[in-house]
Write a protein that binds this DNA or RNA. Structure first.
Lengths: 193, 193, 193, 193
DNA sequence: TGATAAGCGAGACGGTACGTCCGGTCTTGAG
DNA sequence: CTCAAGACCGGACGTACCGTCTCGCTTATCA
C-alpha cells in the first residue's frame, strides 16, 4: 500500500466512503450477499477503484470491520479479575458489533482456504492481545492467583471462543454486563490455584 | 426425505456418492470454493439430482459433515469431571475433523443470512447436547460439585467456543488428550463452588 | 405396431385423442415448442402412453399431420394440363394446412439427422405420387405434349418446391386458385416441346 | 453489432471461432442436436460469450451459414437464359453446401414460431435477389422474351423451391451442371410467350 | 512546461456457477 | 401387457455476477 511518487494520487474520500459503505452493507445484507459491485455503487465509485485498494472482499471487510487501532489500547494490568474482565469485555466489544457478527464467519471461511489471509486476520487479533494476556497471567502466577500450569493459549481460547459462540447464538442484547460477569467468574475460578 | 410410494425411487448410490464427494472436496478446496457443479461432476451425477435432495449447498454440507446420528450417543452421566470430559471430547471430535474445520465457518456465514438454516444447524448441535449438559450440571449442583448460579448456556459456550477457536487456530495435532485435560480442568474448577 | 395377443389391449381412444391434440397444438404452438408432455396433458393421458405408441415426436407428428391415406387417391390421368393441376393442387392441399405448415420444417430438420425418418417422410410423399407423375409424363411424351428429355424428378421438384416455398413465405389466403393456375401454366409450358 | 466506444472491446477471435465451429458442428450433428453449450466448448469459449453476440441459436446459425455478403454480388443482367441460370446457380450454391442443408429446415422451423426471425431470414434472401429478378424479368418482357403476366414471386418460388427440394432429397453430387441446365430450360420455356 | 504515470468513472468482456426446464425412462399399484 | 400417476436422471438452458480490461479524461510528479 506504499504510495508511489508519480501519477495521480488516490482519492482518500473513496477509501473512507468504501469502508463506511462496507460496514453498512455488512449489517444489512451479510457477508456472503455482500458484493464489490454493490459496495461500489452505494459508495458512489466503481469496482476497479476498489480492487485497486484491496485485493479481495475479505481484505476489504477485514480492514473495515477490524481496523488495526482497535487492538492497540489495552490498559495497564491491575488485579487479576479486572484484567480478565478487560479481556472478556474486549472480546465482546469486538465481536458483538453487528458488522463484526456478520463479518467474522465469512472471514473465517475465506481464511480456511487462504493461509495468508488467515495469518493476517488471526495475527492481528492475537498480536498485542496474546502478549498482554501472557504478561497478566505471569503476574498472576507470581502473585499466587493463577496456577503455574495454566497456558495463555487455553485461556485465550476460552475467552475468545465464549465470546464468539455467544455472538453467534444469542441475541445481541443478551450479551450484557451480567453475561460478562458470569464469564469472568468462571475463568478466574478456573485458573485459580 | 420421506419415501413417497408413487414414482421412481431415488438412487441411494447417488446420495452416498454425493455425501462422500462433498466431504472430500470440502477438505480439498474449502467451503467457499465448493460448488454444486463440481460435486456433481466428481460424484458422477448431475446438478439436478443434487438439488432434488438438498435445497442449498449449506444443507448438503451440513448433512455430509454433521450427520444426525453423531449427536445421539451421549453416555449416561458418571462423575462431573468425566461428564465435562465427555462434552469437551465430543466438541473436539466433531469440530477437529478436516471436513468440519472447512465446513463450519461457511455454515455459520450462511446461517447469518438464513435464520431457518441457523436454527437447523444450531438446533442439531444444541438438541440433545444442551439438555444432557443441563442434566449433568443439575446433578452436580445436587451433589455439591457445581455452584447453583452456573448457567448451562455459559458452560456450553465455553466448551464449544474453546473447541472452535482451537480448531480454527491450532494445527490438528495440537488438539490432543493433553489439550482436553487442560480444558476440562479449567471448566471443572470454574464451575466448582 | 402389431397387437400382441396377451395382456391388456391398448385403448384406441388414446390413439385418437393424441393425434387430434397433436394437430391442435401444432397449429397453436408450432413444432419446436410442441412437447410430448403438453400433448399428454391436453389429451388427458400420460407421457409413457404416448411413447409406447410412437418412438419420437417426429413420428407422432408425421402420422398426425400426414396420414397415409392422404396420398392414395390420385385420379386417373386425363389431359396433361389437368394432370399437372392435380399434382399442384395436391401439393398445396397437403402443405398449406396450418398443421402442415407448422410441422413440415420441423420434420425436415429431424430428418436431416435421422436417415430412417427421412426415408419414411419422403418415401410416403414420393411413394405413389412419383410413379403416378411418371406415368402421366410418359403419356404426355407419347402424345407429343412433353419433351422426351424432361425428367420426372425435375418436375416433381418444381411442383413440390414451389408449393413448399409458397406456404413458407406467403400468407395462407394468397395460395388460391389463381396461384395454382399460374403455376400450372408455368410448368405445362416448361415441359412442352 | 455496433462497436461501442466505451468498455472492453470484443475478442474477434471468439467471433471467428464460434462461427467456424457452428458450421462444423452443423455438418456433423445437424441443427436440432446443435447446442450452444457444445459450440462454446468446442470453440474454446463459453456460453455467455456466445449469447452476448447472438440472441438465439437461430441467429447464430443464420450468420454462420448465410453471411450477408453472399447475397450481394449478383452480376449485371445479360440475356434472359444467362440471368435465369445465375439465379438457379445462386440458389444451388447457397443451399447445397452441407451446412446449409443442415441449417435451413431448422431455421424455417424456428421462423414458424418467430416472425421477426422469419423476416430476417427471408428478408436477406429476398433482399437484393428479388429486386434483381424483377429487373431481369421486366427487361425480358420489354425484349419480348417473357410473358407480361408472369409474376416475379412465382418464378422465385419455382427456382428457390426446386433448389430446396433437390438439396433435401438428392445426394449432393446429383446437383450438378446438368441439373442446373435442366432447370433453366424448364423455367425459361415456362416464362416464354 | 511538457512528458510521464497513475487514478478515475463508465461500462463491456470473458468465464464460472447458478438454479431450472424438460425429454425420455422407470416404478408402483390397479385392471 | 396396459393404464394413470408421478418421481427420477441428466443434458441443456439462459442468467447473474465476479474480477479484468479498455477507453477517454483528470491530476499529480519529474525532467
Amino acid at each position: 500500500m506504499l504510495a508511489t511518487a508519480v501519477g495521480r494520487p488516490r482519492d482518500a474520500e473513496i477509501d473512507a466512503a468504501v469502508l463506511r459503505t462496507t460496514v453498512d452493507l455488512l449489517e444489512t445484507t451479510g457477508y456472503l450477499q455482500l458484493t464489490i459491485a454493490k459496495i461500489a455503487a452505494r459508495a458512489g465509485t466503481t469496482k476497479p477503484a476498489i480492487y485497486r485498494r484491496w485485493p479481495t472482499k475479505a481484505h476489504l471487510v477485514h480492514e473495515a470491520v477490524f481496523p488495526a487501532q482497535d487492538f492497540e489500547d489495552l490498559p495497564e494490568g491491575r488485579d487479576l479479575r479486572a484484567d480478565v474482565r478487560t479481556l472478556v469485555a474486549l472480546g465482546v466489544q469486538l465481536l458483538a458489533r453487528p458488522a463484526a457478527r456478520a463479518a467474522l464467519p465469512g472471514l473465517l471461511a475465506e481464511s480456511a482456504a487462504d493461509g495468508a489471509l488467515a495469518a493476517e486476520v488471526l495475527g492481528q487479533a492475537a498480536g498485542g492481545t496474546f502478549e498482554w494476556l501472557q504478561g497478566r497471567l505471569d503476574a498472576g502466577i507470581a502473585a499466587g492467583n493463577v496456577r503455574p500450569d495454566v497456558t495463555t493459549a487455553a485461556v485465550f481460547e476460552l475467552v475468545a471462543g465464549a465470546a464468539f459462540v455467544a455472538t453467534a447464538t444469542r441475541p445481541a442484547d443478551a450479551i450484557d454486563e451480567r453475561w460478562i460477569d458470569q464469564m469472568v467468574d468462571l475463568i478466574v475460578r478456573g485458573i485459580a490455584p
